[in-house]
Nucleic acid binder design. Structure first.
Lengths: 216, 216
DNA sequence: GTCTATATGAAGATAGAC
DNA sequence: GTCTATCTTCATATAGAC
């Protein structure tokens, strides 16, 4: 390894980059924006958090808006990745839905998930494109995953959706999983939910959905 | 009427008050805060919107925070009032739930309802008490109303909640009604939902709930 | 209470040296 | 690219006259 390092410094280190200031700035901006939102966050706070100077921030991002956009997009991508990494074990509908719901709820109810929701929703009138990105990266991806598994369950005869379409049913399920605990956490910002509490919410959502549309 | 108006000016006009500047300021603050949130709103905007001077604002409210709190509390009270004014006609569970859900959804999905949600959620870390107030004034009141009607339905044998408590079931129902359309509207701030669209969402929620717990 | 005018501080963004 | 120092604008809040 490292026999030919003549032009090494011209390449970006692909991972665990030692000190490319852009990453440092982005990480600091993430922390500051997630904690304070767009308007209350200041470039001074970001600069201090990153331990760089003001002009280093502006060397990599033309202004505060673009830095905010970069942060939100990176955060959305990160959550999408986590959703796609869910590991399913073969099993009945109820287990599959529980696995999916638990993974989704854990993301949504994490500190980062709640903070991202706050800032995206708050700034949606000013940054409508970001709101769309968020929707497509999170709820939409989760619903697609659910829809695939619902299709399997319908094929196996475990499910009867009635007049409801698969996609509509999938959206309803993930919204059923998300709504109550998310509202609870958003309006009670001091208390973080335990894993046991999350499991309870998940179980309640799965139960309702299976009672409504399960067969057997 | 009005035979004795000697001390009339010492009393507040109960309605349609001609020009008490405090009301003017509060209304202007409401418009500005709901449109821009807390941090991005400025006292200049409020002052201009109210067509009064800076010191008139500060004569009635000591600072921006307290004005914000007054706005949010008034808005919460207004929504609570609307919820308590829902008129029910005697009927089966499905109609009752539909009436309630439609009224709640109409409030939540109104421009004012969405804007209030945005700012309360965004500022919950900074104003946790306001977030609690919001929760108690809106979702909590709606859930209580639902719980009462669920109790009736259980007594009539129209409903079997299984192991789920009445309050938990009521919360789940209103969250089922709220979650999907609210997320949709929050992340697509340009498109306002039609009454027909709202009815469709309401019907989907009621159908799922009745399929899950209805008897008959 | 209400106004005009202003104090005071902090924000976003840039200049210019290295 | 990175820093220090600074420009400009605009925010919250107050002073003092009426």
């Amino acid at each position: 390894m490292q026999t030919d390092n003549a032009n090494a410094e011209t390449r970006q280190a692909p991972d665990e980059s030692p000190n490319p200031k852009e990453q440092v700035v982005l990480r600091a901006a993430r922390a500051v924006f997630l904690a304070h939102g767009f308007s209350a966050a200041t470039t001074d706070m970001i600069q201090r958090e990153a331990k760089v100077s003001k002009s280093t921030v502006y060397a990599h991002y033309p202004n505060k808006e673009d830095l905010f956009i970069a942060v939100v997009e990176a955060e959305c991508a990160s959550h999408t990745r986590k959703l796609r990494d869910i590991e399913f074990r073969p099993g009945m509908l109820r287990e599959t839905l529980t696995t999916l719901a638990r993974a989704y709820a854990t993301i949504v109810l994490s500190q980062a998930g709640l903070a991202l929701f706050r800032i995206v929703i708050a700034e949606a009138p000013r940054f409508p494109a970001l709101a769309r990105t968020f929707y497509l990266a999170g709820p939409s991806v989760a619903a697609e995953l659910v829809a695939e598994h619902l299709a399997d369950a319908v094929a196996r005869g475990e499910l009867d959706l009635g007049e409801l379409g698969r996609d509509a049913a999938a959206r309803q399920f993930i919204n059923l999983v998300r709504s109550e605990p998310q509202l609870e956490c958003l309006t009670h910002p001091d208390a973080a939910p335990s894993a046991a509490q999350i499991d309870q919410w998940v179980a309640a959502a799965v139960t309702t959905f299976v009672r409504a549309y399960g067969r057997g």
